[in-house]
Design a binder for these strands. Sequence first.
DNA 1: CTGTATCCCGATCGATACTG
DNA 2: CAGTATCGATCGGGATACAG
Lengths: 113, 113
Amino acid sequence: MFAKACPSRHTLEHVTGRWGGLTMGVLVDGPLRFNELRRRVDGISEKMLSQTLQALERDGLVHREAQPTNPPRVDYSLTPLGRETAERLLALIHHLEARMPEVLEAQQAYDTR
Amino acid sequence: MFAKACPSRHTLEHVTGRWGGLTMGVLVDGPLRFNELRRRVDGISEKMLSQTLQALERDGLVHREAQPTNPPRVDYSLTPLGRETAERLLALIHHLEARMPEVLEAQQAYDTR
DNA sequence: CTGTATCCCGATCGATACTG
DNA sequence: CAGTATCGATCGGGATACAG
């Protein structure tokens, strides 16, 4: 599990990285287009959103569906695997948010010491 | 949940960052000393282990107990909050590892396309 | 609208040496 | 043993411009 070369570490980093989790989190509610995603993931740049989506698509967590229309329209959604993964990730996030009072208290105690 | 300024994002990054999760993962099995941790978290440097532990301790996820002996002995362990957090994180990691065949298959398909 | 390409800066991280 | 200090190299990531 903690071997350096373990291939799951790469995927784990995509999911838990700075933008991966947030991106999957907003996709849980349903498919979104590129610029909708960009607006909902607070602070992400075009470049990072593009890179994040490519990594998640390559890992089979996100499905990309491009309509050959003009102007182009591309919908991103979670695959079944992506949805299962997002659920576990959200369980972690929600747990952390629920416990933030404890965390903040611990930080206060640490800093004053 | 996805606000840029949300304080839980900082803690989330400590937990899901490159070393935070791995460090908490090895601590689930019980308390460990500094160099034991260093050996078990494959590839981590002294500096990063030190920084990681300080961040997790400040967040109230890891407990640090120093014995005033010579040579010094310091034990690191998970707090109850840290344990609950680690469980959810491990649920994510184990899920991902169990599905790695699917992930690798998706990557193959993506790359050949 | 949906991206890609380029530049560039600062943060991150590893290696090394050193201290208590 | 348990860290801290310092120095480079690397890399993530933002801004901008551009393409289909």
